Amino acid sequence: MQPDSDNGIPTLYAWAGGGAAFEHLTDVFYRRVLADDVLRPVFAHMHEDHPRFVAMWLAEVFGGPSAYTEQRGGYPHMLSKHLGRAITEPQRRRWLDLMMDAADEAGLPADPEFRAAFVGYLEWGTRLAVSNSQPDAEPPRAAPVPHWGWGVAPPYTPS
């Protein structure tokens, strides 16, 4: 595998198999979501391209191209899709469980180092989504797309 970072270590994006791997992951995931009693109502009216948009987000987070930022508006756009949705802990947990099952089915790398970083981001991101989605939430409206690496949570200092 060719490194695709400045330090010679492959990004999580490259390790996972690039954009095609994340697109396959989200296709598998949203098939599961639409068959799930807990999440189907949340996503029943999603845009047909929603899985592709989520793949773009995940690809950028894990070190791939900045397509989500360039084409979709980055963090502010993603945040706008969650505001006021009042995501519950059972919904968050089901989302996480289905994503992990989809990662297995889609053939994402199963090595402990990759999965630890992958799950670390999913835990962090879904917990923020729950918090940011509550009716009284006032999250930062402008922040960068997080860039997740091998076992390191990205620091964030509000400006």
Results as ranks from 00 to 15, higher is better:
Leu83Arg: 15
Pro140Tyr: 15
Leu12Ala: 11
Leu79His: 13
Gln91Lys: 14
Ala55Asn: 08
Val28Thr: 06
Ser159Val: 09
Pro144Tyr: 02
Asp4Ile: 01
Leu98His: 06
Glu89Asn: 08
Arg31Gly: 09
Pro139Glu: 12
His47Glu: 12
Phe53His: 15
Ala44Asn: 10
Met100His: 13
Tyr30Ile: 00
Asp104Thr: 15
Tyr156Gln: 00
Val33Asp: 01
Pro112Glu: 14
Arg31Asp: 14
Met99Gln: 11
Pro146Val: 00
Arg93Gly: 02
His47Thr: 13
Asp136Thr: 10
Val54Lys: 04
Arg31Pro: 04
Tyr75Leu: 02
Gly151Arg: 14
His24Pro: 03
Pro135Phe: 06
Pro140Ala: 14
Pro3Gly: 10
Gly125Ile: 09
Met100Val: 09
Val38Lys: 13
Gly63Val: 00
Glu23Gln: 14
Asp97Tyr: 06
Val61His: 03
Phe62Gln: 06
Ala21Met: 10
His77Gln: 15
Phe22Val: 01
Val33Gln: 03
Leu79Gly: 15
His82Thr: 03
Arg93Ser: 06
Met56Gln: 15
Asp4Tyr: 04
Arg72Leu: 10
Ala44Glu: 15
Ser131Thr: 10
Gln2Pro: 14
Leu34Thr: 06
Asp4Gly: 05
Gln2Met: 07
Gly8Val: 05
Pro109Glu: 06
Trp15Arg: 08
Leu58Glu: 04
